[in-house]
């Protein structure tokens, strides 16, 4: 094969591959156009469900105005007559734990709900599970206020066995939510 023919052949190979990739990309863009709004809506529904849980009977939600985002830990805050729902994303044992913390007007934790996480199944994941252990872990935050820490660090929060780092993460998230609400005045 002459040099020119080889170059042409390589060009043809690259062009074919490029065309296939372009077609795939176009198809994906089309599908994404249909699914993206639905995926976003699904995520929003989950957030709403979490707010509903931590801030029961809260009435209409309003924007609380400017707040201190605690070094980026707080992503969103919703206010209502009953109090505030604060979305925080502290780091656990393994990646971020996205959770909703309900805080009453007088600065006490109403309830917490974990929206998504990637903690270890059977250990850290217990924090978010619908099991008696998980329920009691989350329930202990109710009514707490001020700066929180786990018992191992001299605080009041019972850490989950074998999942101190996860427990610490959740506790840090709750603390950040409380401080954030305090910054609202």
């Amino acid at each position: 094969m002459t040099k020119k023919a080889t170059a042409l052949y390589v060009l043809r190979l690259s062009l074919t591959l490029f065309l296939i990739t372009a077609l795939v990309a176009a198809a994906l863009a089309g599908v994404n156009g249909i699914t993206a709004p639905r995926i976003a809506a699904e995520k929003e529904r989950k957030t709403q469900a979490a707010i509903e849980k931590v801030l029961p009977g809260g009435g209409t939600l309003v924007d609380p105005g400017s707040y201190d985002n605690q070094g980026g830990l707080v992503s969103r805050v919703f206010a209502s007559d009953a109090g505030y729902a604060v979305e925080v994303a502290p780091t656990g044992f393994d990646g971020a734990i996205t959770m909703m913390v309900g805080v009453s007007r007088d600065g006490k934790v109403l309830d917490i709900s974990i929206i998504s996480h990637t903690e270890t199944a059977g250990l850290g994941a217990v924090a978010a599970a619908d099991t008696p252990d998980g329920e009691s872990f989350r329930a202990q935050f109710r009514g707490l206020s001020g700066e929180l820490s786990v018992k191992k660090d001299g605080g009041t929060v019972d850490q989950l066995s074998g999942a101190t780092v996860t427990s610490r993460g959740v506790t840090r998230g709750v603390s950040a939510a409380l401080k954030c609400v305090a910054s609202l005045g």
Partner: peptide
């Protein structure tokens, strides 16, 4: 010469489509 690369791209395309559809529906 480029069939494996082409197959992988095509397969990855379909997988992503199914992935997105599952996430949505």
């Amino acid at each position: 010469q480029i069939r494996i690369a082409a197959y992988i791209v095509i397969i990855a395309g379909f997988v992503t489509i199914v992935d997105l559809l599952l996430q949505a529906f």
